[in-house]
């Protein structure tokens, strides 16, 4: 999938396709005196689905927040489409070609599903009629075309996840930052929704940076996996996922998949202090 998208990108211009959508160089992230991550160097190429995995609190979400412009780098360089990100989002329409799905989804309880999706376009200055039409399209794309006027509390956990994804899709941002968006779902549901999401994102040509705790989710959905150490996080290893696209659920039972998850598990256990039972 990623290969196909890269090929089409190359047809549009070699230099554009070669330039990473996200480039971090010796990036250090901190909250005051507390360093969350240090010396992070990684790229996300056009059309790639890249996962960040690592122990809890290691700085995965901080890295995502930095790419999203919500956390200023303490040092190093962070570029999105060649533009430095300094943690100060530009006010006004479409500051960058980036959309964010938060871990707790950050849906607004006072807004119906369609109005939650619309607000991304409202901030971008899109007119009322157009934003309603586009929001309904986005909800249909995530399978919620029949419940646009329900409030978040009237939706199941999985449906709320889809509203959050629709809100990220509606702005047409081509880079999606997903911070454990399926954390509240059971393992089977998250793999199923994740696979559907990948297909949808593939059709839309999205580039994805994805934070997860689930090794099988990372292995099943990703083109590459960045394994991080405990806080302050550094990059321990970057793994190319050897599984072919498109992926069917049967891939979960293949030796290659098990070998990959075993390797990921071993990498994480190497840094496990072993005092948590």
């Amino acid at each position: 999938m990623a290969g196909q998208r890269e090929e089409s990108a190359r047809a549009g211009g070699v230099r554009e396709a070669e330039r990473p959508r996200v480039a971090a160089r010796d990036l250090t992230l901190a909250y005051g005196d507390t360093t969350a991550a240090t010396d992070l160097t990684f790229d996300v190429r056009p059309g790639e689905f890249v996962s960040l995995i690592g122990p809890s609190g290691c700085g995965k979400s901080s890295a995502l927040r930095a790419v999203g412009g919500l956390l200023a780098p303490a040092s190093g360089e962070l570029l999105v489409d060649g533009t430095p990100v300094d943690g100060t989002p530009v006010d006004g329409p479409r500051p960058r070609d980036v959309a964010f799905v938060f871990q707790d989804l950050a849906l607004y309880p006072w807004r119906s599903a369609v109005r939650n999706v619309e607000i991304a376009l409202q901030f971008a200055g899109v007119g009322r009629a157009e934003r309603r039409a586009r929001a309904l399209d986005a909800l249909r794309a995530v399978g919620l075309g029949d419940v646009p006027h329900r409030f978040p509390h009237q939706l199941s956990g999985g449906m709320r996840q889809r509203v959050a994804i629709a809100r990220a899709l509606v702005s047409d941002a081509s880079i999606l930052l997903l911070d454990e968006p399926f954390a509240a779902l059971d393992e089977l549901s998250r793999l199923k929704i994740g696979e559907q999401l990948v297909t949808l994102l593939e059709e839309h040509g999205k580039t994805v940076l994805f934070v997860t705790h689930s090794l099988s989710e990372a292995a099943y959905l990703s083109d590459r996996i960045i394994v991080m150490t405990p806080r302050p996080a550094t990059i321990k290893e970057v793994i190319e996922v050897p599984l072919p696209r498109p992926r069917e659920p049967q891939v979960l039972r293949t030796p290659e998949f098990h070998a990959l998850t075993d390797r990921l598990s071993a990498l994480l256990l190497e840094d496990d202090p072993g005092d948590v039972r």
Partner: peptide, 14 residues
């Protein structure tokens, strides 16, 4: 366009 589908929506809370 592929749609993400899931369980049938639960009835709105009365």
């Amino acid at each position: 366009m592929t749609a993400i589908t899931g369980a049938a929506p639960a009835a709105a809370r009365r």
